[in-house]
Design a binder for these strands. Structure first.
Lengths: 252, 252
DNA sequence: GGCTTCAATTTTGTTGACGATATGTGTAAC
DNA sequence: GTTACACATATCGTCAACAAAATTGAAGCC
């Protein structure tokens, strides 16, 4: 249970305040508001900044600059850097400081391979545990996604995409899997960003997302696992196509 | 490639100096000797101590005591503690110090569920990439395991078990998966220990291990994935039985 | 002109001390 | 005899200064 701390703040956001009082109560046990103080402001700020792409890959992160930028001390900053290194977001080299870690296409593929099987597991478990309220929420989410695609609002669609995956995780209540998926996501963000903007991508992924919602809602674990796997297989294929194209162009 | 650093020291040990010169050469590319100096002696020492069970779960880790014990400074010690916390081996509470994190049976089950799918992925990939030399090594490993079981040397069998899994990972060369599996293993050690000593357990797991070796050696990815999954399903069942028995006894 | 060497500067590594918070103990009041 | 409060101690959190290492730039040499 103590394990939920890092995931709770993100998954709870999946519901976005739209749930009724009874449902809120239902989810409350899963939402651990305890925050590790060592997960200081600096850590959170720096992490989101890297995830947003405000620092380029391979860019050096100089301690004194960052202490000014985030108005903090070197002590707290270094603590944050240590954590980010363990998480795999940055690289620390002795006496040479920190760099934003560059994720190769090859590594992005590896990460997606893992996500495929782990999120498949999570989807199956979500199908076993889903409540009526959660089914309703998933339905709404699906409708919102359709609307976003029709309005060709790709940014919104991308957001809803992340929200769908987070919701499935939250339903599954599989703390260990959630932790790992979020760790992997942290390393993928820049690549995901690119992929979600590939033209024609929503045409492929939209039905896959709906299939996940349908399978989980019909409480069919096998179907849910297959639907989630199919979706991530499609992501994987897109990534491999990208890698292949890059290799052909001689960019690798 | 920079990603292999944390896994190299453990996977390289899998071969235990028993390989011929040509094979050693073959594996050399996979053994990255670069060590992050921030992964200081303190970190390694403390980590292995926790993994060996030298500190009981929930036991408090007092900074001044540890600095004496490991003859180091508080600075380096805290760095190590921060890393161990991110890794999930210990818990840090504000102004209340560090504790060894206790893994519940429930959590052990969750972790094994993840291992099942991720190690399945790794086994499939190992079957795709395995070389003749590696097949020979796997064969020897299988023979050693049979010998250990016949000699009822459970400690040796347990070691070889870990070595088999590490070897499969090494063959697969899936850095991201390796990293995650080893992270999960770190949290499981105390439970694994108990399980490996359950009477009659080798009778169940021995044929499963041999099936993994056979499937990988015949370069059949699907069979390898299924064999690995079957093995970890069996581990999972044993864990669930243990959890059920504990619940019946009122121990939970 | 290109290469090496050396020093100045930047940047990181480490230490010790001090302040803040929690915990344990003893005393007094009920 | 029990509870509540206050004090003392242990432990963690933070900082600022110092030491060590690497990078950068310029000068000298081939």
């Amino acid at each position: 249970m103590a394990n939920a701390r890092r995931s709770a703040d993100r998954d709870s956001a999946a519901y976005d305040g739209r749930t009724a009082a009874t449902e809120t109560e239902e989810y409350a046990r899963n939402v651990d508001t305890w925050v590790n103080p060592l997960m200081s402001d600096v850590y959170t700020a720096l992490r989101t900044a890297i995830l947003r792409g405000e620092f380029a890959p391979r860019q050096r992160l100089i301690e004194t600059e960052l202490t000014e930028q985030y108005a903090t001390s070197r002590f707290l900053l270094r603590n944050a850097l240590t954590r980010l290194e363990t998480e795999g977001l940055i690289e620390l080299q002795p006496n040479r400081g920190a760099r934003v870690r560059e994720i190769s296409v090859q590594e992005a593929i590896e990460i997606t391979e893992i996500r495929r099987v782990v999120e498949g597991l999570v989807a199956a478990r979500a199908a076993e545990r889903v409540t009526d309220a959660e089914i309703a929420f998933l339905h709404d989410l699906g409708e919102s996604m359709k609307a976003a695609v029709q309005a060709t609002d790709m940014l919104r669609y991308s957001e809803l995409n992340a929200q769908l995956h987070a919701t499935v995780r939250s339903i599954a209540q599989h703390d260990s899997a959630t932790r790992i998926i979020e760790q992997l996501n942290g390393q993928m963000v820049r690549h995901q960003f690119r992929l979600s903007l590939v033209p024609g991508r929503p045409t492929v992924s939209m039905p896959e997302h709906l299939a996940i919602i349908t399978a989980v809602s019909s409480r069919d674990p096998e179907a849910a696992e297959l639907a989630m796997r199919a979706h991530l297989t499609s992501v994987l294929d897109a990534l491999k196509a990208f890698a292949g194209a890059a290799a052909t162009r001689g960019a690798l």
